[in-house]
């Protein structure tokens, strides 16, 4: 069910949510968190879709904040808020409210979002594209326990990476890091099997790939070795090589979802390493809402082997 509201306020939106829920006959609220998506019109559709898919695992109220720019200068000064309320089958397993802000209210989006947060439930903010310079200090970001950015989706990923390093606060996380989980878990499993000291390491990827950079920094910090970066044609991360006394441990994924794992003294075998869709990444992010300390370690890279407790 969809309810359109023009030139509205947060309290009218709240009323519409209650009305929508009553209309579909489920007055109980089984949602576990509020997800705030801050995006532009261009990326809104894909992000909402990903959030709705993820809501099957984590029923959520999704608030989508879209800043609109009016065409004429006169309209630009006029401040107003439009909302689209979706409940029931139109909104995954939760509720979705799409907020379009015009004019001055765009700078005070937090005043609209705050009354719409679920009581007592955690808040997650996700910027699918352009994240603020310091997410934790952003008016919307400061409402959240978890702030999700995506360095892969910006013009200059490595510049964004440096910005993330400077601005890190507990609760920050990035989808470029989330994408690495299968790689990292396979590397850890390979090392469980090899049980030997690593003396060198290399990460191969396409140029300017922030995930590869994070992977290299994480390996450097954890293994205490210098990690070489090799640029290949991609796609994304193509291989990781860990050198040992007895030979190399290699996970090689030249193309497609099928990788090969080679351990010293053992025949190579295949591994499934799929590039996951955004909805799965978001679902993984929502599984734990406490600070991701290992992400901080990966951002900082070598030098800090201990997990920092407070940053």
């Amino acid at each position: 069910m969809k309810i359109d509201l023009t030139d509205t306020t947060a309290s009218k939106i709240n009323k519409a949510l209650v009305k929508g829920r009553r209309a579909i006959g489920t007055p109980a609220v089984g949602m576990v968190l509020t997800m705030v998506i801050v995006t532009d019109e261009e990326n809104a559709y894909d992000s909402i879709k990903a959030a709705e898919d993820a809501s099957h695992e984590h029923p959520a109220r999704t608030l989508v904040v879209i800043k609109r720019h009016a065409r004429s200068p006169r309209d630009r000064t006029k401040s107003h808020l439009d909302a689209e309320v979706r409940v029931g089958a139109d909104a995954g397993t939760g509720e979705t409210v799409i907020l379009r802000t015009y004019g001055e209210v765009s700078d005070h989006a937090d005043s609209v979002v705050l009354p719409l947060l679920l009581p007592d439930a955690p808040v997650v903010v996700w910027w699918p594209v352009n994240a603020p310079e310091v997410p934790a200090k952003d008016p919307l970001g400061s409402l959240a326990q978890r702030r999700i950015t995506d360095m892969y989706a910006v013009e200059q990923p490595l510049v964004a990476l440096e910005a993330r390093v400077r601005s890190y606060a507990p609760g920050d996380t990035d989808l470029a890091w989330t994408r690495l989980t299968p790689w990292r878990s396979m590397l850890a499993a390979a090392l469980d099997q090899a049980r030997t000291k690593i003396i060198s390491a290399a990460v191969e990827s396409e140029a300017e790939n922030p995930s590869a950079e994070l992977l290299a920094r994480w390996l450097g910090a954890r293994l205490d070795v210098k990690v070489d970066r090799v640029v290949t044609a991609g796609p994304v991360v193509t291989a990781v090589r860990l050198g040992t006394d007895k030979g190399e441990i290699v996970i090689d994924r030249p193309e497609g979802p099928l990788a090969t794992l080679t351990l010293p003294g053992q025949p190579s075998r295949t591994l499934a390493l799929k590039v996951r869709p955004t909805s799965e990444l978001i679902a993984e992010e929502l599984r734990r809402l406490d600070a991701d300390e290992m992400y901080a370690v990966a951002l900082r890279g070598g030098g800090t082997k201990e997990t920092p407790r407070h940053v």
Partner: peptide, 13 residues
């Protein structure tokens, strides 16, 4: 032998 790639704080793995 401790696997350096595992850490109790790393709860994604």
């Amino acid at each position: 032998w401790d696997n350096p790639l595992r850490d109790p704080g790393d709860r994604r793995l």
